[in-house]
Nucleic acid binder design. Sequence first.
DNA 1: TCAAAAGTGTTAGATTTACACCCATGA
DNA 2: TCATGGGTGTAAATCTAACACTTTTGA
Lengths: 225, 225
Amino acid sequence: MTIFYQDHSKVLVSVDCIIFGFDEGQLRILVGKRQMDPGRGEWSLYGGFVNADEGIDEAANRVILELTGLRNLYIRQVGAFGSVDRDPGERVISIAYYALINVKDYDKSLQEQHGVEWINIEEMPKLFSDHDDMVRRALKMMRQKISCEPIGFNLLPSLFTLTQLQKLYEAVMGEEVDKRNFRKRIKDMDFIEKTELIDKESSKRGAFLYRFNRRAYRDDPYFKL
Amino acid sequence: MTIFYQDHSKVLVSVDCIIFGFDEGQLRILVGKRQMDPGRGEWSLYGGFVNADEGIDEAANRVILELTGLRNLYIRQVGAFGSVDRDPGERVISIAYYALINVKDYDKSLQEQHGVEWINIEEMPKLFSDHDDMVRRALKMMRQKISCEPIGFNLLPSLFTLTQLQKLYEAVMGEEVDKRNFRKRIKDMDFIEKTELIDKESSKRGAFLYRFNRRAYRDDPYFKL
DNA sequence: TCAAAAGTGTTAGATTTACACCCATGA
DNA sequence: TCATGGGTGTAAATCTAACACTTTTGA
């Protein structure tokens, strides 16, 4: 310890991760049964401690990489949670982060290895400690974000149908939207490009596949800072 | 240390406070010249370390009480800041909070005692470490909040004129608004009550004073959760 | 009497919402 | 041939934005 900030108590700091995925028309998050005491066996977010030599964002990225095997994800901080008794073992201040992933990119073996499962956000069991609060806040922030920025693409394959995109918005916002109005809005967004490709998975007729053009979005005068 | 989370490094955790005030038509925050090393003499937010026996929100309330002498303020967490090198002295993870106060309630002697000054948000000097980022994020969050919830009243006396309220919105949002449209919107809000009292400070003619009715707001069907 | 702030309505344009039918295909 | 999801336009209602003059009063 240096001379600067003497006599102040140090505390364990962890990061907890809310991993959002979209599958079968449902918004889901990755949770697992806690494998350590205290709280062994309770449903819990995946987390890890912040090391002395890493920033908190770095720690979040590391932990999320550990869990998902994925890099360059859309990750945002939810906030710090620091009630004295939030962890029954020892005092731990935890910083929650959420990440959006395309479930198709997620390696099944990693999932098994970490003993985590996708749980529909609507059917969340009670979680360990204050992890419920973290999830609620993450969802609130994500809804906020998705309704003014196109972040939903991080939850979809790079090619997707308009119906998929609509179902995603509905699952996130928890309410249905009108198909024609939705498609009208999408048409106004120049950064959502129609391709000539057809998806035949989800219907007999087939549906055009679209893609999100990140560059066009960045250049869109509407979203310029 | 208990047996639970062995071998993880602990770290100093602090809270830093962005105190917003509204005076002379300007949105201002309280900053002071840093009185300790490292960074002595640089402009800085007021902060303090989180004690072992207090939650982070508690710590924020304590530090803000210390600085302002005021209780029951509107306080919100901005987020955690945790780059390894953010503090040149030693590793410190800091959690930023913003608070809204009515400058008239602020005791001048406390201000002098802590050596802090009101600085217009538009004319902020470079601040110590990442405090600039904290202020930017706090402002962003506050703007977001104020445009969908009536939190502005926390920055005003309990009786205020519509012109004051408008100037406040303008200062926060950084843009002018139309007087008639503004007043129209206010009239639609049943929780902003006109009193029979007249303010003669700011004009010869005098302007009606209004008050924010917290109860009416809570009961407003529009804002029901 | 005049400078300074208070107060007050209307209209055009833009945005949002509601709503129903035909199409293409594989089973 | 029929069940399934894909795809399309219009009109009413609502919301937003622009805009200018009269009132009161203390100096």
